[in-house]
Structures are given as C-alpha cells and as structure tokens.
Design a protein around this nucleic acid. Structure first.
Lengths: 246, 246
DNA sequence: CGAGGGTTTGAAGTGCATCAAATAGTGTGG
DNA sequence: CCACACTATTTGATGCACTTCAAACCCTCG
C-alpha cells in the first residue's frame, strides 16, 4: 500500500539514526520496509531465531526479554516511538539475542539488515553515526547495570520516574502518566510486582510524591532527585536514557 | 625509544581491533603511541577527566570503576592483555566515563583518539570492524547485566571460573589460577569479600571443585556448568566474554 | 454482573550486607 | 632467616531488603 510507504517515509525521516543515510540507500530502505500493527501480547520473534530484519517502533510499546534455562525471563528493555531493535544482529551471527513482545498496541516498521551493512560500507558518515548509536547504547547499558546493582528498589523507581520527566522541567511540579503496567515496570527494574508496590509506598513516604493508579504527581522534583540520585554515578539530569533510542 | 616503538608495533599487530586499519593510518598510530609501565595502585585517569587518548593493555590488569555520590565504587570491568579501554570517549564528549586503576603491574599503550575517528572516516572496513567491536561489547554487557540480576553469588563465581577455562577443554579436568585478588573478583562480581568467601565455600560443596589459595581445581566441568548456567540465557560454553576485548 | 488480570497486603523465609574480630599470607627491615 | 606490619581472607553474629507464597482487593471489559 502506497499510503503505508508514505507513512513509513514520514516517520523514518524523523529518526536521527537514519539522518546520515544517503538518498540512494534510504530509498532502498523504504522500498523494503514493512509496517505492521500488533496487539498486546504479540510475539514478534524469539531469541535464537535467524534474522535478516531489524525493527523501528513507530508507536506503542515493545518488550525485549530473554529466557534462562530455569524459566526466568529477564527484561532487556522496553521500547517506544523512535526506538530501534535487533539492529545489532548484523554482527551477531544473524541471530536474535533476545525475544520481542508487544506490550501495548504497536506499529512496527521492519527493515532488512543487509541494507544497514551496505549503508555502513558505502557511507562513512552513516557508519560513524551507527558507531555513535552503539556507543550511546553501550553507555546507557553500563549505567543500567550500575543502577541495578547499587540502587535499592525505591531509588530505582524514583530514577525511572525522573527519566519520564521532560528535560526542561526545572523545579516546577510535574504530573506524569505511567506508560505501561506496574507489573511490567517492576520487571523492567528487576524486581517483583509485590516489591514494586511496597517500594513505591516507601518512595511516596520519603519524597512526598503522590501516585494514584497510573498518575504520578511530583511537587518537589528536588526531593526525588536527592533521594534517588545519591546512589548513582551520573548527576541529575541523568543521561540514563532508555537504550536503543534512534 | 625505538625499541619501545618496535615492541608496541609487534603487539598491536596481534590485536584484532587494529587488523583492518590501513598501513597509512596504522603508521600514524604507532608514531603517536606511548608505552608506559605502572605498578599496582596507579590511577591512570579519573571519571570526568578530559580525554584525547585511549588505551590498550599489553600486560597486567586494569580496573575500570565509577564512583557514586555516596561513595560506593562499582567496578565496570577488569581488563588484561589485548583489551582496549576509553575507546568510546570519541563519542562521549571526550570525557572519560569511568576511572581506571592498575591492579596488577601493567604495561599500557596509549593512543590518540583522533586517529580512531580519522581511521573510521577514511576506511569503511575499519569502521565496520569498530562497529563489530562495539556490538560485541554491548552484547557482553547485556549478559553481564543479566547475570548480575539473575544469578546468585555462588553461580556468579562459577560462571567467572568457567570463563577462565580455555575454550577447547572438553570434559577433562582443569586447573586454574586466579588472575587477581579474591577481594577484587568479589567487586567485579558485585558482592562483598565476605559474601565471596562464603559463596565460594558453597560452590565447592555443590560442585566438588577445590580451591586452595589462588588455585582452582575442577574435576567435573559438567557439575560446574549445570550449577551455574541454569540461571543464564546463554548456553555453555557461554560467550560472556570480558568486554572490550580487541 | 461476573471473569480475569493487575495490584496490594500479610506472613514467612532467603540471601546478602554489615560490623566485629580472628586468622592466614606477604613483604619489609633488621 | 626471623619478627613485625600490613593486607587479604575467613568466620561469626545480626539486620535489612527483597523474594516467595497465599489471599484479598480492585478494576476493566465482555
């Protein structure tokens, strides 16, 4: 469908990952792009599947996760608009390193990885941009690791909220809306739902924020910052961006 | 000193990270390379320092770590021969993202990052190789995160030992030598020295391995594998390589 | 209105951290 | 080669954070 291609084109042009792609190469990308819409629960692929495509989230939310031999499912990341995933399979035996599941109704664009490789070879500035993308991702992972090991449950939740606050918020009060299930947030932060619930209560006590359902009210941003960021090696506003952002 | 340059040259040619570097560019690298020798305890740089150099470990061991506001020092990684560090500062505001300290007498080669950037721009295959390096690093980080969150202390130690076992060891019995302090291994694995000591004892009970001082005897590799790898999403032999390997 | 998932609460257990102190190891100068 | 100083490692006792299991509650959606 042409209208779909146009939609894809409009969207991809806004994703900085593709900014440095040559017109020639970009054309081929669009040509081979598919846009699909999935409901909550749809498994896009499973860890270990052979891959020749990678993906860009246009809307909705996607969970990346693994599975251990004893059945635990660690969450790798949870992605939304503008985020790219499975792009690193070019280098990893063309096998997906994790599974992907739609957790909130999502529009997903899929693209052939071969074009990524081609673009990197032909276009130095694209390759450099790609490198930059990987470096950012790596740096974000490093920080995620740190926060997982060093921050306790309430601090991790506070940190999660802070990352939802728009950058230019200053010290004003903010109202947030949680983007997905609390159970899923808990998994993303590496804790049990029960722990999340209790830790959230503690966070409210300690920092004065108010949480009703999926709504978070923060009156004193400072309180939250000093509570959460004390156990973090980045200052605030911290650059613990979600990985894979394009 | 010329003899130092020759030593650097000999060594760097064996590091796969530089394999795809053009002769021209490689020559410039060698020209601007410094080899330094440091004793245990030497701080090479501190997180936040401005940087225009990156490093390759020729021998010895180097600890990368951060520091949080409340004084905790999470270990990022511990590197040895052939490992590269601070190479990602090209993309990160030219600031070191962590501190580096020599933990076992080490020979360190330092090189200007500007040449990395130049080489990536001029030579597509170098850029691709660099990308591959970053992707491997990122994948290793992902697994480290997983192991930190999902494996318990004895399992992490077992996993650490398994990564010290030479690849082609089959099911034979193996004797290992711990590369550095147990206290440091503990830090690397995100636990306290006391916990390490107790967890090691438990690991010995459960898997039949024997540890005396810095010597580890593993009779039944299988035991260790099934004990440790059950809580891991990679199979065995697992590819949880130390990051930053060149 | 009832079914089913998300969320909270309670009670009990586990793993790791912390503090304190003993022991083993290592390198030093005499 | 020994005694001392200093560090690494182990051991014991205790506490806290998080998990686990069980059950209630709440909310939404057919």
């Amino acid at each position: 469908m042409d209208c779909s291609k146009e939609k894809i084109d409009n969207f991809l042009r806004s994703v900085s990952f593709f900014k440095t792609c040559s017109e020639d190469c970009y054309g081929k990308l669009i040509e081979n792009a598919f846009l699909t819409v999935h409901k909550k629960g749809k498994i896009l692929f499973i860890q270990g599947d052979k891959s020749d495509r990678f993906y860009v989230v246009m809307s909705g939310w996607v969970k990346l996760y693994r599975e251990t031999l004893d059945g635990v499912q660690p969450v790798v990341d949870i992605l939304t608009t503008g985020h790219i995933f499975a792009e690193d399979t070019i280098f990893q035996n063309k096998e997906y390193e994790y599974s992907a599941e739609v957790v909130e109704m999502a529009e997903i664009i899929s693209l052939p990885t071969s074009l990524l490789e081609k673009a990197s070879e032909e276009n130095a500035s694209f390759a450099l941009n790609f490198l930059k993308h990987m470096a950012r991702k790596s740096s974000a992972q490093e920080k995620k690791l740190e926060s997982m090991v060093i921050q306790n449950a309430p601090q991790r939740i506070g940190c999660f909220f802070l990352r939802l606050v728009p950058q230019d918020q200053g010290h004003k009060s903010v109202t947030l809306h949680l983007p997905y299930d609390k159970t899923l947030i808990a998994a993303r932060l590496g804790m049990q739902p029960e722990t999340f619930s209790r830790a959230l209560k503690k966070l409210m006590d300690e920092t004065g924020i108010k949480v009703k359902g999926a709504t978070v009210e923060i009156d004193q941003l400072d309180n939250l910052v000093s509570f959460s960021c004390i156990a973090c090696s980045s200052g605030f506003p911290c650059k613990n961006l979600t990985t894979c952002s394009g």
